[in-house]
Each structure stands twice: as C-alpha cells, then as structure tokens.
Design a binder for these strands. Sequence first.
RNA 1: GGGCCCAUAGCUUAGUUUGGCUGGAGCACCCGGCUGAUAACCGGGAGGUCGUCGGUUCAAAUCCGACUGGGCCCA
Length: 988
Amino acid sequence: MAPDDAEEGTTAAPSAAEIHRRVLAFWEAEKLPERAVAGVPGGPVFRFTEGPPGVNGPPHLGHVEPRTIKDVQLRYRRMRGHALVSAMAGWDCQGLPVELTIEKRHGLKSHREIEAFGVERFCDECRAAALEYEAAWREMSQQLGFWLDYDRPYRTMDAPYIESVWWALRSMFDRGLLEKGHYVLAYCPRCETTLSSHEVALGYAETTDPSITVRFPLADDARDLLVWTTTPWTLPANLLVVAHPDLEYSVVRTGEGRDVILASEAVPRYFAGTPEVRERLTGRELAERRYAAPFEAAGPGTGRYRVVLDGFVTASEGTGLVHCAPSFGVDDYRIGLREGVGVFDPLDSRGVFGDALPLVRGKGFKQADPILLADLAGRGLLFRSETLRHTYPFCWRCDHALLYRAIDSWFVRTSRLTDALVRLNAGTTWIPAHLREGRFGNFLTQAKDWAVSRSRYWGTPLPVWVCPAGHATCIGSFAELAERSGAPLPEPFDPHRVTVDRIAVRCATCGASARREPYTIDVWFDAGSAPFAQFHYPFEPSAFDPRVPLDFVSEAIDQTRGWYYTLLVIATALFDRPAFQHSLTCEFLLEETGRKMSKSKGKVLEPIALLDRLGADAIRWLFLSQDFTSPIRVSETTLERAGHRTLGTLRNAVAFHLGNARADGLAPVREPPAPTDLLDRWLLSRVAGARTAVTDALESYDPRPAATAVRDLVDDLSTWYLRRSRPRFWAPPEQPERRAAHATLSYALGELARFAAPLVPFTSEWVYQEVTEQRFAAGNASVHLGGWPTDSGRYDPTLETGMRELREVVEIGRELRHRAGVKSRIPLAELVLFGEASPALAGLGGEGEALLADELNVKRVVRVPVDSADRYGEADWVRRMDETRPVAALPRRPTPALLEEGLAREVARRLQQSRKEIGLRLLDRVAITVSLTGPLYEAVQARRATLAEDLLADPFEITQEALPDGPDVRRFDVDGLGFSARLVRVPA
RNA sequence: GGGCCCAUAGCUUAGUUUGGCUGGAGCACCCGGCUGAUAACCGGGAGGUCGUCGGUUCAAAUCCGACUGGGCCCA
C-alpha cells in the first residue's frame, strides 16, 4: 500500500480501489463517521435535512449523483465547524412502492386479495421490506462516503414520525386547509387509488392509442355529428356533446352514408380536395340538438344526449365537437355538473366494466377499446379509425395506464396558498438558478389542490374520523386519540391501519361515534414533513426551533415536483416560512444510449460493485467535474476513466513525493513555509488561490468551480511544478534547495488534501495520512476532522500572471524547436525574445529567465528590440511572428560544442536507463566500461568526471576499442552513432 | 398548445451572466520527448461554417429575433 520500497528509488502509487478500501477500513476502525457526522457541537448551526429516499428497491447508480453533491456541502460545513442539524439519515418507508413489492411477492392483485391475505400481515411485510432495502441503501451510501447518521435514522413509518405528521394534518384541518371533495383525479386502477398531480407528473410516457372519429346520429335528422376521441372506453359513459358557441361548423356530404357535421377548420383533415359543403352554421345553432349516444349504457336521464356549448372546445384537434363523459375528465365533470346530467361511471374500482354494458362486461378499460371499436364499425358508426402517438400518464410505480375519474378524496387546499408559495419561493436561491422562476416557480403559480388521500394500506393513516351525521373530526396526537376514544391505546401503539381502523372516536361536533375515513395519505406528505417530523416535533422538546427554514437541500431534478414542492407547501401552510434557503439540483443520469437511467430497465450499473471496484472518488469525481445540472451520460467506460486524469495524476505526484521524502528521511511540513525559490513561491500561491476558489464555491453551494480549481491545481502541480523542480528533489537532503522543495511540496499536498476533502474524501484522506506521515496509524487525526484551511500561504496574482506568461513563451520556444528539428536534449545557444517583457513576466527576474532557459535547454535568454529582427535571418534562425511583429527566434542548429554536450547527455541517459534495467537501486555503485568512437568519444571523454559522478560509476573506463559480446555488454545507438558499454554491479 | 433547458472538434466538454487578444482542454488518432512518478510523466500535429438564418455593434460562440433539432416538464 504505502510506498515502502522508497529506497529503491521507484514508488508505485496504490490504485484508486486500494485507497478506497484502505480509507474505509481506517474510518471504520477510528469510528470516523460516527464522530464527525453531526459536525462540531456548539458550532454555528447549519440546517439540513436528508430528503428520504424511498426504500422500495435497491439503489441504482442514478441515486449516487445527488448523494455525492449533497455530501460535498455537508463535509464542507463540518470542516468549517458548523453543527449540523440534522445529519440523520432518513428513509421513506411507506406507500405504494413498498406495497407493490409485497403484492408481487404474494401475487396479490386487488384490494379484495390483500384483505383476504390480511392487512396486518401485509403491513408487517411492508415494514420488513423497507428495513431490508434500507440496509442496501445504507451500504451504498457508506461505500460512497456519504456521511449521515445511519444508526439513528428517521423513518416515516415510525410512530413518533407519524404522530408529527398527524399534528401537521390537524394544523391544516384547523385552518380549513384539509377538506374532503369530489373531483376528477388521476386514478390507477391497478393500485386502486388516486394519485396527486405531482405523482402523475412522474409517469408521463409516450404511447400509442386509438384515434377514432365516431358518428353520433342526430335525432329527427339525417345528419351525424362527428366526434373525435383517443379514449374509446369513455364512450359508454358519454352523456353530452360539446360545441363551441362561436365556432363555424360545416355540414359535409360524404359520398357514402349520411352527411356529417364538424368544425369547418377540421374539414381539410378529414376530406381531401374540396368536399361538398351543404351548409355552414355556428355552434350556437347546434345547441340542444339531441343525438343517439353510441352505447347509451347510462340509460335515459334528464337532459342527456344533447349538444351543449362551452368555450373550452377548439378545432385545432379533432372535429370541434367534443364527447363529454362527466365521470372521466375535468372539463367533462364541470360541464356535466353545470348541465345537471349527473355522473355515470361504468367502471368498478379496478377499472373493469360492470353490468351496464354487457358487450364489455368484465373487461378492463383498455381491453375494451378494440371490442368497442369493432362494435361501432359493425354498426357503421366508425367514421375513421387511426392510431396516435402521444404522451399519456402512467402510474409512476406500477406503469399501469392511469385514467381520470370523478372520485371522493381529501385535499390540501394548496390553491389557497398560491400567493404565499410564490412569495416564500422568491427568497430562496437555486442552482441552477432558472429553476426558481422556471420549472419550480411555474408549478407554484398553477398549484392545484393537493389530493392527499389514498385508498391503500401501508401508509400514514388519515387521522380523520367521520360520524353518521357527516361531521369530520381530525385527531392531532396519540393522546388526543386515546382521550376521544375513551380508552387507552394498545401498548405498544402502532398507528397503522387495522389498529387505528378499530378505534372509534367521539365526534367533536355532535358527540356521536365516528369511524375513521379508510384512507392513508400521500407518502409525499410524509417526506415533506421531514424537517420537523424527524424530531417528533412538537411533542418532544428540541434544542432549536425546527420551524425555521433549512439552509440547504439537494436532490435530483424530479424532486422539484416531488419533495421540494411538498416541503414548501407544508412549511407554508404550517409556519408561513420557506422550507429552505438554498437548493442544489442535479439532472438525471443518462445511459450510454442517452436514455434515462432512473427507470429500472436496461443494463444495470450496480453501484456498490462499481464503488468497490473503481473507488468512490472516481465516481464522485465523474459527477463533480462535469456539469451535473445537465444530464450526464454514463457508461462502463466513462466510469472507468473518470478518476484517471486528475485523481490518477495526484496519486502519482504523491507517490513521487513520498518516495523522495522517505528516501531522504525528510519530515512532513505542516506550517506554511516561506521559500525564496520562484517555483516554490508560485506553487504556494497557486495553493492559496485554489483554496480561496474552493472556499468561495462551496460557500455559495456550488461544487462545480471547486472541482475545476482542484483539477487545475493538480495539473499545474504535476506538469509544471514537479517537472521543473525535479533536479532539486534529487539534491542531497541537507541541501537548502532540496529542503525548500520538500517543504513546499509537502505543505502543498497537505493543504490540497484538506480543501479537496469535501470533494474526494477518500483520496484526500490517503494523501493526508501519507504526506503527514501519520500513515493510518490508530488514533491519528483524519483530514475530515482537521477543520477548514484558512491560511494556505500567500496568494500572489502578479507572480501567477508572470508564470502564465512564461509558460506561454515556453510553448513558443517548443514550437520553434520543433520547426528547427532540434531535440530538446541538444542545447541551443540562445532564445531571442523581441521587445520588452511585460511587468509581470519581468517581475520573475533572473530566476524566471533561468527557468525558461532550462526548460527550453538554451544557454541564455536575450531580449532585443523589435526593430532588430533583421539580424535574425531565415538562414540561421527560426522565427515566430505575430502578424508582422517578431516574437521570438531560435537558432536553427546547435554549435559544435553544444552538439557535443548533447551527445554526452544521450550517452548518459542510456547508461542510466541500463542501470535501472539491470536492477540497480538508486545508491548502488556500478563499474562501467564504455566503448565509443568519433564524436561520442570526444563528448564523453571531455566530461568523464561529471558523468562518473552522475552515474555512480567507479571505475568509469572509456575506450575506443570494441567490447567483445558478453552477458554484461549492451549496445546502443545515438542518432546513427553506435556505442557499447559493460555494466557490472559493485558489491556494497 | 404552453413553459424551462440545451446545441462548440469523431466523443466528452470550457468559454456565454459582464460582447473584444489566434475559441481553450481531455479522450481517441498521428508524431515525438523523458537521467531516480515508467502499467507513470511531458510535448507537437491534425481536427471546429461555435445548429441555421437574420438583426444590433467598430467588434458576436457570447446580446436580440426567427427557424431547425434534442431533452425535460405541463396540458
């Protein structure tokens, strides 16, 4: 794991996965999450609430993204010394999703079967399933390094939590915000319950439906109304046809059959060419005409089967004549009510046709479509039959097609809160910012009443009891329930159905015995109550006021209509306060193909296995280094590459540092050093700047600029600082230059580990443990407990500008070398720069020039006036021009002396390589006999002493005679010049 | 039908708020470098009508409008 082979001079960085496991083990041994999770007791309060994931299935990769961006902010706040309120993990345990799991397990298909199975047993299994999935979620979250208090989580199914939810419902009831109504609602016939609008929003999908146009024959008339629908199954419930009073309608001759009536605007959609129009009339003229309904399943009734008028009709689609089934549409219901025709619903609670229409008795509503179509066709009433591709709502959990139907339900009157919702939302900040007024804001302005009751079993029971006189009594606590029922509650009290259903209470209005309304409530109400219900507010004393807004929430985009919305509604209704001040929202992940990943279809990228195999930081980094406010496309390959560049480079840089520091026995440096060297000062400035950038980013809740700052720093550290500083790291440990470089790098890596810790907690912990030489020893401090770095050395913008400019000159110099065709190993006499240096660049002084000369392997850097360019002619120089202005020039060829120096370097490099290849360690001595001729001989002979020293060669013999072949003899080629050498290890 | 977001190299993308140097980078590709990070590190090259059209401006990837295509949400 740690580079223990430092004395060999090579160090391999551990893999990301090794680091991941090592750090996890360390945290576990040190009980780190438990100690750190709540932040610093007594510190400034930072209010957070974990949006409880539904524990109705195992987590998938899509869940990792929001948990990552949440964790970054929480880690930052802990390091800043905040006390986190709250760091509880939270689990959404109830509701349809869990019920579905159990239904599937036992093959239960209806309410009747569940009741036969036993509601109590059913709920017990739901509870057990929730706990089971909670364990999987906990495992994933811990692997991810998402620190929450998993030992003391809040669960929406726990009795204290439910009591708080009851309190909330009661508060709304008392304010007239919780009422019963009869409305047209989305209804899932498979789940046999209504869905709220935000649940419906989760389940829109593209589908193909029939698109049919049906003849409705007018009574006492030889003409037919043309009516268009995509839901043939609603035709049996037809009671009216609606026309627009001012729209123009045409009577068109069809050629076969009776003439038809439709909106003039719709005629071209139904008839090619110029059909014969016999008459034009307005909708008003059609009013009150009676017709024969296609099925007349509803039977006779006052005012049924006639044409009525309404402004909602358009002719942009269909025929401009709308079939009205009051039981199955919002407008239909409204018009039916107005016209006094009643409501006829031929479907039972499972969406199956009953006795009213023998033709389709026992068929589900969708199954009935083809039968109804065939029947209409048989009677000559099917004018046109096509299919239509459109979006249609499906149940967000079971995928069954929804239907809209008129039904009894309890509502939270959110429509009365619209102004407050908009006002409170205006004071919140969002990332991305457009959500506040855009998607979320729009949703608020058109907030409909929230249908909260569900005809289900495993959920918070609606605490409303109704007496025979119809008075509703809402119970707000367990104590009140005991008091009103006149008997103590069972011990222990489980406030779920069966137990609660058995209890009758005294009506608060008339004193009669009241039964509970047999509903559970929308699980989103549970989740939206989390900020206070997790503390069992208001029943248990709290160290703070749980009503005030949370500082921070963070979820994926779907929660704008989900949790964010219910949080705000409940906070508004109960406290007239915003639910949160800052929200950070990520988009969904997409599969490689660009499809949404959150659906459990397609190839599964199993998160726990991936975290273990790639290391959590690689995956965290993937999400943090990209713009998570847009969908991120994820595949096996992107995951594997995610941590490569920045994190891999960092690991190797650390390994390089450790190898050197340990070989030289240099101690870690924690206090900001005050080096004089240009590169050292530059690196420390970069560290200070990056720390500020990360701090600013996280302070404003946006991890993206923080990740960019870390990436750029790692890049600069590896590709410029380390590369340019390498010779100093090879100097003997007692040399001041070696000590300065070590101090700078040691300090820089330690600081980097600290301010990168919220982003990549595993890699940071490893860097910190190794660089500080604590090396995961028991009882040692974690980087995560060390507080936020506030003084990371001096930021020097002028220095950084100068260095940036210097590196630009390097680029130019490299380009010139490339054009001249002279390798960088061959020294050139000079780099000529035209014109004055900028103040920032000049500020780097002679050290800067030396750096430049060294990097470009030129003997000197000279500056000459721009107008002296003529002296650097094409024959001997390569020049870089900026438009017409000369920028720099470099000699086309080395001088003979410089060429010789380059050749010596070539020889040395090959001999060094050979040292390594024969397994010599850094300080091993070697006996070398080298055989060369011509210019190579001259070059090496002239530098014999230096080369011998560099190569630790003793003896170092140079000959012009050929060496005989032998096991220790190697042959080389330098630009076409051959030489050979014998290397033999000298025993220590 | 309405709302929001997006469109930059083969792929992933920075830059767009606040218009201004030759539109940066990574992957892949080609070529090359590297004396103790070598399953590492570094450089060079090629590759871009900045979706299309129009407008504002001395100047537009950036601001405005229309259009095309994509995503999400709502009806």
